[in-house]
Design a protein around this nucleic acid. Structure first.
Lengths: 254, 254
DNA sequence: ATACAAGGTATTGCTATGCGATTCAAAGTA
DNA sequence: TACTTTGAATCGCATAGCAATACCTTGTAT
């Protein structure tokens, strides 16, 4: 933790603004000032100032009812700047798009952030029915191929910390919630260079992921190909696409 | 403009933090503290404070050289919350994905923001070669089908203001830079319900767009289908896909 | 219709947060 | 080595941000 002296550089108002933005989500699309104050824990007048400021800056707007606030499309620009500037993401995108066209599945580049992965690039092939997960979505590590593959790049100590911080929620009937079992899968991925995950995050998901490390931006992540159990079983997926996924990852890295 | 009294609610530090984030882009991936100070116009110690704060919040990180700062993947979360919460975007995504699969082109939902449009949803079909434009990208109105179609929903006064604010840069040899000419195209779109644009923003781009208005979030935008002039001419595109694009738009709106 | 509660809007005196100037340390260059 | 530039840290101060509050508007119950 930082020393008290160091935190004199920390601008608390900035934290508050981001906290306000973060209370808006899929389940809380439009929020009143009183909602915002309650959800953030800030006083009503603090909430008023930060909502007012964010409206002026264009990141929030008033709802049609003139009471509520909601996020604007301008919020997407902030992340777009990362997408457009990060060299790994830029290199990966054409390859991922090509791979999704070849396989008709969903291809994703994920990056580790704290105890989760963030999807930073995602292309959907013809067979994909689910459009809810998007660039910027955070997913857990313990029950996603993306998460496990990315985590295989961590040192043991960090891996243990990350696993200890997982929710271990039983998302499907088949979700593995034994920490040692999942850790073993991650260690296996570390050795064999890929991981295959089925029905762990959501039923019918069958995902194959390869870890990827980018030295320029010091990012640990993974390249993931997701298909549906309706079209593939595990052996088929490995046989048909493991080599392609690995060569794609090598091409992105060169 | 707001009165001086009203701006006592405005938190200037928040503006500064977003300004700092905004100086990072594809051409300025990694910036030193001195760079940030120069580009923002803030004092060196202000730049230091905001960079420090944004690093603590996770939106910036130190580059491998320990001097420069760069954006993190966490920035994408902010926009993801908009994507996941906005009802128009949510409704549109499955339809857009389906349309890109049927046409092999790129489908986009754009939303007006100031004098530009922002891409808030985008799916790439097999024929698409260009992966540089992403969710969160801003594009001008005067030379894009998305922009023109969305602008057709504006009242005349606002439309004139928006057109007056365009850069009118000659992006390709064929870019229309006569304001009256483009305005006429927009007014035609208003009447006929669609616009077709070719080689205006970038060579080989052939785009068909339909305006869309969402009453719930009071958003003006457009649904766009982009193909390449290598595969289609204008008449073909209209004949094959105009009806499909319009019925897709109606389905999204119901 | 009236009274009360809840939520939005605006104000204002106060203080602590953010500021800028500066110093010190580290790195780069000739 | 000397000088310049850049990064890191400090500190007194004043104004930016704060919290309390009053006022206004809307909604609800009797």
């Amino acid at each position: 933790m930082t020393t008290p002296k160091k935190d004199s550089l920390y601008v608390q108002s900035v934290e508050k603004a981001f906290t306000v933005l973060a209370v808006f989500n899929a389940h809380q699309r439009a929020l009143s000032l009183t909602d915002v104050a309650k959800l953030t824990g800030y006083s009503k007048s603090s909430a008023q100032r930060f909502c007012y400021t964010l409206v002026k800056l264009g990141y929030l707007k008033r709802s049609a009812n003139h009471s509520d606030f909601e996020l604007t499309a301008k919020t997407t620009e902030i992340g777009a700047r990362f997408i457009e500037s990060n060299s790994l993401v830029r290199r990966a995108r054409p390859y991922l798009h090509s791979l999704s066209s070849k396989t008709d599945g969903a291809t994703t580049l994920s990056i580790l952030d704290g105890n989760e992965v963030i999807f930073v690039s995602r292309f959907l092939g013809k067979d994909v029915l689910d459009t809810t997960v998007t660039v910027g979505s955070r997913l857990p590590i313990y029950c996603t191929a993306s998460g496990r593959a990315a985590a295989s790049l961590l040192d043991d100590e960090t891996l243990d910390q990350v696993l200890a911080a997982q929710s271990w929620e039983q998302r499907t009937a088949e979700t593995q919630t034994d920490i040692e079992q999942v850790k073993q899968q991650i260690l296996t991925c570390r050795e064999q260079g890929y991981t295959l995950v089925k029905n762990q995050y959501v039923m019918a998901d069958l995902s194959l992921a390869v870890p990827i490390y980018d030295a320029q931006s010091d990012l640990r992540g993974s390249i993931n190909l997701a298909v549906t159990t309706a079209n593939f079983d595990s052996d088929q997926l490995l046989e048909q696409y493991l080599n392609l996924l690995q060569s794609t990852t090598r091409a992105i890295n060169s």
